[in-house]
């Protein structure tokens, strides 16, 4: 190994870091220098060994979880933060709500239709509905992991057909469906599991235009994501991490 090139240019050439003229110069040199040609072959061999070695290690799942928990602790939770889009109307809505709740009976009373452009419910209601669902026996009206069972179950119970898909392969198995009332409106709820946690996805029709998935809201240790897509309003609520929730939201959005 006495050739100067093997010390310097060869590695830049191997790594694709030489500019065009230096690269050409090295290639010309390579034609006449057996030593460099052999050294290059050895380096290429080392590279291919390293790259197909499987030495690259992914972060274990438990670590991911720990980090998310630490990030949660390092993130400020605004007091009584509301869904951003509905912020201004939330106060009005909650006044309406007090009246609404005293008027509308529990699931299935039907006629709770309000102006669809108005904010349909508040963050407090949403979290209440989520917590309520976690009480024994309240989570599902139809318990099934089969989307073809859950989807038709909603027929005749609602005046819209919520899109129902199972994402078991992506780590979010469908657990079932339920009817609920939010802001005086009948809504469909799809329940997904994430390990030992449940995610409620509230679905109701809207005439508002599509929105992207909004930044997460936080309240009482629960997080939610809200978006509108193809005439449906979605709100996913859970105590799983924001990232997990986001993953599910994106699966549904697609």
């Amino acid at each position: 190994m006495s050739c100067d090139y093997t010390h310097t240019a060869l590695h830049g050439y191997l790594d694709g870091e030489l500019d065009a003229s230096r690269s050409e110069e090295f290639e010309r040199h390579l034609e006449g220098c057996r030593e460099c040609a052999k050294a290059l072959e050895t380096e290429e061999s080392l590279r291919s060994i390293l790259q197909r070695s499987g030495l690259c290690e992914s972060a274990p799942h438990s670590l991911r979880k720990k980090i998310r928990a630490e990030l949660d602790a390092a993130t400020s939770v605004p007091i009584a933060q509301r869904i951003p889009l509905w912020r201004w109307a939330a106060v009005a809505a909650s006044i309406v709500l007090v009246a609404a709740i005293s008027w509308y009976a529990w699931p299935g009373s039907g006629s709770g239709t309000r102006n669809p452009a108005a904010p349909p419910f508040t963050a407090a209601e949403l979290i209440d509905a989520h917590i309520r669902s976690l009480q024994p026996g309240h989570l599902t009206d139809v318990a099934s992991t089969d989307q073809h069972t859950v989807k038709p179950w909603f027929n005749g119970k609602l005046d819209f057909a919520p899109p129902v898909k199972d994402f078991a392969e992506d780590g979010f198995p469908l657990v079932g469906g339920r009817l609920d009332v939010l802001g005086g409106r009948n809504v469909a709820v799809l329940i997904y599991a994430r390990r030992k946690h449940f995610i409620n996805v509230f679905v109701l029709p809207t005439k508002e235009p599509d929105t992207p998935i909004h930044p997460p809201g936080l309240r009482q240790g629960y997080q939610w994501l809200h978006w509108r897509h193809q005439g449906m309003e979605y709100c996913a609520v859970s105590d799983v991490s924001v990232a997990d929730l986001h993953e599910l939201a994106q699966l549904i959005y697609q």
């Binding site: 690259c56 992914s58 990030l71 993130t75 400020s76 939770v77 809201g217």
Partner: peptide, 28 residues
């Protein structure tokens, strides 16, 4: 200072995808 939820979302989007690379470097 604590970061707010918007900064958190941005962190999730920009930085967290590189967790595997971070772990791999630390591991070696």
């Amino acid at each position: 200072d604590l970061l707010d939820v918007h900064e958190r979302a941005r962190f999730e989007q920009l930085v967290l995808p590189h967790l595997d690379a971070a772990f791999n470097l630390a591991r070696w």
